[in-house]
Design a protein around this nucleic acid. Structure first.
Lengths: 199, 199
DNA sequence: AATCATTTTGCCCGTTGGTACAATAGGTAG
DNA sequence: CTACCTATTGTACCAACGGGCAAAATGATT
């Protein structure tokens, strides 16, 4: 496995090397990264948000340099930044000088396809879960199981095509469920349905 | 640490035991759980959503049986269900036959007080949360007068045609405004915009 | 006078969404 | 066995949506 740290901070370089092993490669700046660089699936890139160009980190997260898993480090971590990076595709966000134990655990989680975020952010997201997942009215009770599933997807703003893919059914079937849902909710389209649910 | 798996599926029982160790206790059905059962803080309960009563799982997640951390397993995982279970208090939601590695990671994360969710859902939540957390004031301020008007109509779920009629302009102009609005809000269509505004 | 942001519109294109008119199949209740 | 509900899918049609390319007019700013 290839692991790269991008940071100009000597102390951070030492810290990470101590925690993860000295086989880590280090690059002082993202600008030094050849534009032709193509990370492979499974590569791990730690990047120091304190002293790197945000735009380049952004591109890195979005996969412009290949399919590496990106972990963003910050010496002043905050939830807002976390959601930004994770939303862009980062696989982790944590304090640059986290304990070696935490760093190792992050590595393990990210390598196995997970995301690493702080507990505080998780709790906030959980609070939002509650809102998103709040039980609806009696109208929802009138829906069949599959129809309810479709509604969940709808609420996330997904297209018919995507819903079909995620439910592993044809787009036509999604439409069939939608037609049924619209009738039961007495609305004409998904927009009105969303407005009704949001109210 | 006490770990319990609730599933009638032999293959799942074997799979989990192989991944986490054979010290796991197994219960075929949630119905077999004595109503007086009180899990303790730190207890880990894996429950198979495929063959258990949803209502009982629900109560389990909500803590009716004590303060165990609940991890929901499904052979057909989807984001909608994830939102439901996590919203109810589950600490994790993942594919029943995830790799042993992933199962172990889940254990580690959940035990240390975290949540385990799929990457796709996590990113969606972050994206959504980012939108929520960000004051739309700044975004709305970037709109022109007419664009703001259009947004008002949009929030009421009106069609382009209707908006055009009410603003006494052509439908093409409405589209032009919309295109500008979408760009400024960094969304692709009216649905995403509504979700952003509604949040 | 020249530049710029804003507003307006037309034509055309591809994609998405909703539905009419079907059919097949599994399960349940009578 | 027979309805009935649910889930699934197909073809096809049309309306709605989003945007590319273009143009014109206005008002403000420099």
């Amino acid at each position: 496995m290839y692991t790269l740290l991008i940071s100009s901070s000597i102390s951070l370089q030492d810290h990470l090397a101590a925690a993860l092993g000295s086989f880590i490669e280090v690059l002082p700046s993202l600008w030094d990264l050849p534009t032709a660089t193509r990370f492979r699936q499974g590569d791990l890139v730690w990047v120091d948000a304190d002293n790197q160009d945000p735009d380049l980190i952004k591109r890195l997260c979005k996969g412009d340099f290949g399919s590496a898993r990106v972990i963003v480090l910050s010496s002043t971590p905050n939830d807002a930044a976390a959601v930004d990076w994770l939303g862009l595709g980062a696989a982790g966000y944590l304090h640059a000088f986290s304990t070696p134990e935490t760093l190792r655990q992050t590595t393990a989680v990210v390598e196995s396809g997970g995301l690493w975020v702080g507990v505080g952010l998780m709790q906030q997201l959980c609070a939002r879960f509650g809102q998103i997942a709040k039980p609806q009215h009696d109208l929802m009770a009138q829906l069949t199981e599959r129809e309810r599933e479709v509604v969940q997807h709808l609420k996330m703003g997904k297209s018919n095509k995507l819903i079909a893919k995620e439910m592993d059914i044809s787009e036509r079937t999604v439409k069939a469920h939608l037609t049924a849902i619209f009738a039961k909710f007495d609305v004409s389209d998904r927009i009105q349905l969303l407005l009704k649910l949001a109210a």
